[in-house]
Nucleic acid binder design. Structure first.
Length: 394
RNA sequence: GCGUCGGUGGUAGAGUGGUCAAUUACAUCAGACUGUAAAUCUGACGCCUUCGGGCUACGGGGGUUCAAAUCCCUCCCGGCGCA
């Protein structure tokens, strides 16, 4: 993998560039489509291609449990397995330590509200994951069986799954965890990072896969900066910025980190994908973003438009024969009406998920492409302002 | 015509003297969703309300009872059986 910066935007950390992988080029900033289980939910590989997606990211935890990494390996990797021939990534499974662990059964999510209280994280009853220095023990959400993920086993699994870019195994902490825990977790993630590099070197003799280290640190400036320095100094090919944020943190915390991370390596803001957050992330110097939001929200009937979100299940749309967006060039908008989508959702037809996912992915992919264009022509900040004014008016 | 079973909220269908404005599901109306435990989840869902409560409701009418969706009488409607 090679990364080169084409243009930096004055007065910001934003940059436009290009990542070269053995399966193709990624023009950055770029939105990475999420195909957790080697499928972008509701879409075929052909549809993903037609949307202009550049990269697909799958998840180690999910593919390890089902169908198993051996099968994916025999298929030639998750890309060939799902008929995606472009660049690929895998997440390490570290996020599942959060979503199945500390966050399990709680309202805490990837983007928390600022007033979420700090909690006693010693109670782990009912959780499906438990974190120790060795790794994370998981109870499969599929059949309840117990599994252990370590930095070494995650590297092995990701090697077998065979993506072009993979992530170090990290612990994504809950924003409600106390400072002391975050600090302790950070040193654990750092130790794991070194173990990941060591074990990956042994597997990947020819340097076929790029390995990204993950910067954590919660909402604390000192921890974020410490993480950026320590992880940033290791021999990674790129970096992921992880953790759970509040809305405001995405601009601030990411800036703290990217001011420190080596400039010449790509930065991936993990799990972020709402319009304003993408703008903030790009402005703060991130090159890659992946997010389930466009597809999940699509499946649930929420559609992006330049005038904000709309819930296509609302009764007003049953007789609205306009396009979702009049000037949108996606397949859904050029072929179907709001009333048709509203009908498919109400009738629980699978095509509803497909058409909505296509529209939302098209919307977000084009949005990030436009961010790249406007970095190149110097109008990024104007574009950000005019877009956000319209999208978030009300 | 006789006998018999049944008529409950938008629908299906519980309830069979008080804890019933009435279980549940679906439908409906909204909301949430940010490295996918997610084609998921949450809330509302008779009318009014100063949120204490009030009012009208379980086919219609009448009755028994302190109290009826629940018991009795009668009428209407439907299914089934026999003529």
């Amino acid at each position: 993998m090679k990364f080169k910066i084409e243009k930096k935007l004055d007065g910001t950390l934003a940059r436009a560039g290009e990542i070269q992988t053995k399966n193709g080029v990624i023009k950055t900033p770029a939105f990475v489509t999420v195909g957790t289980k080697a499928t972008v939910k509701a879409l075929t590989a052909e549809q993903i291609r037609s949307l202009g997606a550049q990269v697909v990211l799958a998840n180690t935890y999910h593919l390890y449990l089902q169908p198993g990494t051996e099968i994916v390996k025999k298929a030639g990797g998750f890309g060939p397995f799902m008929d995606w021939s472009g660049p690929t990534m895998t997440d390490s499974g570290g996020f599942q330590a959060f979503s199945l662990g500390a966050a399990f059964g709680t309202a805490v999510s990837k983007v928390a509200s600022a007033d979420t209280p700090v909690e006693d994280i010693s109670t782990t009853a009912g959780q499906l994951a438990n974190v120790t220095d060795e790794g994370v023990t998981f109870k499969s959400h599929i059949d309840g069986s117990m599994h252990l993920f370590t930095p070494e086993s995650s590297m092995k699994a990701q090697w077998d799954i065979g993506a072009d870019m993979i992530f170090a195994f990290d612990e994504c902490t809950s924003p409600t965890a106390p400072y002391e825990y975050q600090k302790k977790s950070l040193s654990r993630t750092y130790e794991w990072a070194k173990r990941c590099i060591n074990s990956h070197e042994k597997l990947d003799k020819k340097k076929e896969q790029a390995l990204f280290g993950v910067v954590q640190g919660g909402r604390h400036q000192d921890l974020r900066e410490e993480a950026a320095r320590s992880i940033g100094s290791l021999e990674f090919d790129g970096f992921g910025i992880g953790g759970s944020f509040t809305k405001d943190d995405i601009a601030t915390a990411v800036t703290w980190v990217n001011k420190i991370l080596p400039e010449e390596k790509p930065r991936h803001l993990l799990g972020i994908g709402e319009p304003r957050d993408l703008f903030d992330g790009v402005e703060a110097g991130c090159d890659l973003f992946d997010c389930i939001a466009p597809t999940r929200m699509g499946r649930h009937g929420t559609l992006h438009t330049k005038d904000g979100r709309l819930n296509i299940r609302n009764s007003v749309f049953t007789t609205d024969f306009n396009r979702i967006e009049e000037d949108c060039t996606c397949y859904t908008c050029t072929h179907h009406t709001r009333a048709y989508l509203a009908h498919l959702f109400r009738a629980d037809e699978m095509t509803a998920a497909t058409l909505a996912s296509m529209h939302n992915l098209h919307f977000i992919l084009r949005l990030v492409e436009k961010m790249r264009e406007t970095i190149l022509n110097g109008t990024f900040l104007d574009f950000k302002q005019s877009f956000c004014e319209r999208y978030y008016k009300k």
